[in-house]
């Protein structure tokens, strides 16, 4: 019998693959190692990221689900809550007691009840509604607030790039 983290990840993988939620594909990169996942997130409809397919990586700790995984987009992203290197900064991915930007209440932090599916759904809603108060990417947060047209333009460019469409 394998470790509990591995068993839980396998269960989540199965669940995600058999009943994939709208706009999400996720699974281990290599099924010999269940702790590194890749996922594809579809930009939510009706937002500036509409139509994009964004690849990201999920890295799980060995004590998952007691500690949260890390998530990093592997494509170019421009978003107030995504660092320029692609790391995602949302409260659901932070263990209570570690708050990099000091804006989060512990009620929305990581707990074992969360899952890959919930993380990815929150990321989708984060794409739709950036939280410009806790900016991981200050430039993007500022632009989101002050110059929405320019932000939309950049987002559209990123969407096209994610689909490999010539600009």
């Amino acid at each position: 019998m394998a470790g509990s983290a591995l068993r839980r990840l396998m269960a989540e993988y199965k669940q995600l693959t058999l009943n994939p939620p709208e706009g999400i594909v996720a699974g281990p990169i290599n099924e010999e190692n269940f702790f590194d996942w890749e996922c594809l997130i579809v930009g939510p409809d009706g937002t500036c990221f509409e139509g994009g397919v964004f690849p990201a990586k999920l890295t799980f700790p060995t004590d998952y689900p007691l500690s949260p995984p890390k998530m990093q987009f592997t494509c170019e992203m421009f978003h107030p809550n995504i660092y320029s290197d692609g790391r995602v900064c949302i409260s659901i991915l932070h263990a209570p007691g570690d708050d990099p930007l000091g804006y989060e209440s512990s009620a929305e932090r990581w707990s074992p009840v969360q899952s890959v599916e919930k993380i990815l759904l929150s990321v989708i809603s984060m794409l739709a509604e950036p939280n410009d108060e806790s900016g991981a990417n200050i430039d993007a947060a500022k632009m989101w607030r002050d110059n929405r047209a320019e932000f939309d333009r950049i987002a559209t460019r990123i969407v096209r790039k994610s689909l490999n469409i010539p600009l």
């Binding site: 993988y13 199965k14 693959t17 058999l18 699974g27 099924e31 139509g51 397919v53």
Partner: peptide, 28 residues
Amino acid sequence: MELKSLSERKRRTFLRYLDRLGKAKDED
């Protein structure tokens, strides 16, 4: 093996997405 069939499904889901997105994008 179960895993294999799962990964197969994952790929197919992805392809479906790409397919559908392609159409949607085209219309847009």
